[in-house]
Amino acid sequence: MDHQITHNPSFALLEVNIQPGELLVAEAGSMVAKDSHVGMEVKMNAGAKAGFFDKVKAFFIAFVRKIIGGESFFVNHFSAAQPGRVWVAPTLIGQVAHKKLGGGSFVMSSGAFVASMGDVDMKMKFGGLKSLFSKEGLFMLEVSGTGDVWFNSYGGIEEIEVNGTYILDNGHLVGYEGQLEYSLKKAGGGFISSMTSGEGIVLEFSGQGKIYMQSRNIPSFVGWVANMLP
């Protein structure tokens, strides 16, 4: 497999060159183009060798992603008998980033998944009220294993190395490395200040590791464009 991402950070397009025997799993509806001989099969999002239990889990993940994340229930499996190309892109404006998994885990917004290849395991991480108020939905997606994961953001992605504590506005979180923790905080001093600041609630990360933040957030854009509507 080799891949390239063009048109970052606003209109990312991912091109994956699939070798025989490889399987690319991509969000349903995300295909832009492909060589004619590349096969596409629609699946529920389970591993290739999934047993019954895995399928139940996959159903649960798909269900949550559909209901909470507004994502599609299904994924498409792309494979080819001879090398072939597939192009995929997310629906929203923004960046696509690539992360190579080598045993560690990575937590991302449930809507951030674009594609994966290899032995990648996904599980839903219940974030509770904390996650809901951080505008990330009730569940986050935790990926682990070995392989490749591509994820997208609304806006461009900046990596922040946290060593101690760091504050991130809600709505700007794309993902974070598994060893970090976060809690919710009021943005400013008092209650009134927090509400009028326009920042409301923020996420305070602690520990050591990387946060991936996005430079724009959908509610702000929606608020901006709503003012301009005829």
Binding site: P9, S10, G155, G156, E158, I160, G164, T165, Y166, I167, L168, D169, H172, A187, T196, S197, G198, E199, E204, M213, S215, R216, S220
Partner: peptide, 30 residues
């Protein structure tokens, strides 16, 4: 595409006035 400013303060007491809701992230002690 998506202009964003990373500002690094040199001195304690330095200030920046920012439009409401434009802050994206900061050190906890700012």
């Amino acid at each position: 595409d998506f202009g964003i400013c990373q500002l690094t303060f040199d001195q304690p007491g330095e200030q920046m006035v920012v439009e409401a809701s434009a802050m994206v992230a900061r050190d906890s002690n700012v």
